[in-house]
Design a binder for these strands. Structure first.
Lengths: 209, 209
DNA sequence: ATTCTACAGTAACATTTATCACAGATCTTG
DNA sequence: CAAGATCTGTGATAAATGTTACTGTAGAAT
């Protein structure tokens, strides 16, 4: 492992870190791997130590409606909760940048809640922040039109990667917003005319955001 | 109290029930009361013992986008999670049928997680089911058109009240779906023509649902 | 270099949803 | 009952979004 768990999860107590290293199983997955499918039973809680995972809702037509991304130091809220009851997943999880993860068997996830205060707080905080993120998504689709949603989408991306370039094709963006490529192209062009972005092939530079 | 806590929350252990009765504060609120506002800090976890509370997201224009309803035997997931960190609420909660609730101070909510297994399970299950409900809402607005969303909305209502009449005006429905009354009227008329509903003033009877 | 493929731009048109305008029906209140 | 308020129905029109069709361009593959 390149970085220690303690660096990635600074709030975990030392005993918790030790327990995780002892009981968790460290695994790597390549970009494109589907880690979780709608309807699948969940057997593990996943802690991300490297890479990026996209959590989305799948439409019948192949839409991949973006809920949020998971990055190092985060965990899958869905898996944590469903795990506790060994329920079915209601979402899809796909690796979008090669990841390293710690898999925690469901019994332990549950057991640690009582034994490790820092684990308990991490789980609660994970749940809270994800719930909030999903609420924001609802806000966007319920109250905003496509041009605003697109702006928000780009902003999220640049926030997530810490840079001002978004390396995605119009088609990929359209899929994640559940609209069509043409609409995305049109709106991006308008944004370019307003001086908000600069469009290149497979790349959108954000200006004045 | 008309019914005992034990009847309404059958999974709570007897000790937990006793603790709740000892430490919680029993309160009543009339229809129309706003129990929680966006941006407000949360100081209590709320257990519903009677009535109905609507959890919604407020739009700038006064839209009241429905997330879900809280009924007896349920608790506000938002309050449980935010409580743990004393965070701001991201939603609105309005009484839609006179309610009785138990208010649990935030420190206790947290403390009981360690002390009462049945409380822990209740909190986790509350979170899981609400998250799922919100995901379903996302599904609907992301992938479905207004006629399907309206059908789903009516179904939810009849499920929630256990009857086949929905006593709401077209305007109220429009507000909760963030559309306009005219659209709702038109779509309902079409549903009536297809034999799915019967329309009366302030009431929609669901047939063959 | 030529061909192939993915990506991007754009016009024309269809569909869905929102908005405006108004009329009739039903209930409430004095 | 008369007057006012609320609720519902419906046409006309506008705006946003989705769809189809076609073009051009950049990069990859042969």
């Amino acid at each position: 492992m390149q970085h220690s768990l303690k660096t990635i999860f600074p709030n975990f107590s030392n005993e918790l870190i030790a327990t995780i290293e002892e009981n968790g199983s460290h695994q790597n997955f390549e970009t494109g791997t589907i880690l979780m499918r709608t309807g699948q039973y969940i057997k593990n809680t996943v802690l991300i130590t490297k890479g990026k995972i996209k959590i989305y809702r799948e439409g019948e037509d192949g839409g991949e409606f973006l809920m949020y991304y998971l990055q190092p130091g985060q965990a899958c809220a869905i898996s944590m909760i469903c795990t506790a009851k060994s329920e079915k997943s209601q979402i899809m999880a796909k690796v979008v940048e090669d990841v390293s993860v710690m898999m925690i068997p469901l019994q332990l996830m549950d057991k640690w809640m009582m034994e490790h205060r820092s684990w308990y707080e991490f789980v609660i905080e994970t749940y809270r922040s994800r719930f909030e993120e999903v609420l924001e998504v609802v806000d966007n689709i319920a109250f905003r039109s496509m041009d605003e949603r697109l702006e928000f989408y780009l902003k999220r991306h640049s926030d997530a990667c810490g840079c001002s370039e978004v390396n995605l094709s119009h088609q990929e963006i359209a899929t994640e917003l559940n609209t069509s490529r043409e609409v995305v192209s049109r709106l991006l062009k308008k944004m370019e005319q307003r001086g908000l972005v600069k469009l290149n092939r497979n790349q959108i530079e954000l200006l004045n955001f």
